[in-house]
Write a protein that binds this DNA or RNA. Structure first.
Length: 154
DNA sequence: GCCAACGTTGGC
DNA sequence: GCCAACGTTGGC
């Protein structure tokens, strides 16, 4: 079992949007970065833990706990001509981009990135590294445990 | 809105 | 295969 941090812009899909989805589950479409794709395609498994992270907003940070709720499958938007995620080089026979489904476990009081940066236990966390832009990054089990044990309130 | 950092593209 | 130009990301 692995752990992930998954970024989303709340204006696109917030934790409340996720909570309102049928089954509180959303298809994680639109990943168009090869490194993030490879994490998803090669390492994600149903049942993996995920931190649902709000980026590019007033208070970026971890907004909820989620889980990977499906195996990987081709991202349908790569074949849709009028989608902004359309990829002319992708075919159904050789898809280039993939999805998993992500299901809410629970919404939590937001843990701002500024707080994450205060803890030496998290200083090596991939998502906090300078210049990191990956929308999907792996979390060490130790980082996952630290956050759940010490930073999640309620 | 700024801008540093990074990924991608395409001419050569 | 190099690398400059360009586009995107995302915290601030």
């Amino acid at each position: 079992m692995r752990y992930w941090l998954m970024k989303t812009e709340p204006s696109d899909c917030s934790i409340d949007d996720l909570a309102a989805m049928p089954g509180q589950t959303v298809a994680w479409y639109g990943v168009r970065n090869y490194q993030a794709r490879n994490f998803m395609r090669d390492q994600m498994r149903a049942g993996d833990g995920a931190l649902f992270y709000h980026s590019n907003c007033a208070t970026p940070g971890i907004a909820g706990i989620a889980r990977v709720a499906s195996t990987v499958y081709p991202d349908a938007t790569q074949f849709e001509r009028n989608s902004k995620y359309y990829d002319p080089k992708a075919t159904p026979e050789t898809p280039r981009w993939f999805n998993v489904d992500v299901q809410l476990v629970r919404k939590i009081p937001l843990i701002p990135i500024r707080e994450l940066r205060r803890h030496p236990e998290l200083e090596r966390m991939r998502a906090l590294q300078r210049g990191n832009r990956l929308s999907i990054t792996p979390l060490d089990p130790a980082e996952w445990n630290f956050i759940l044990k010490n930073l999640v309130r309620d």
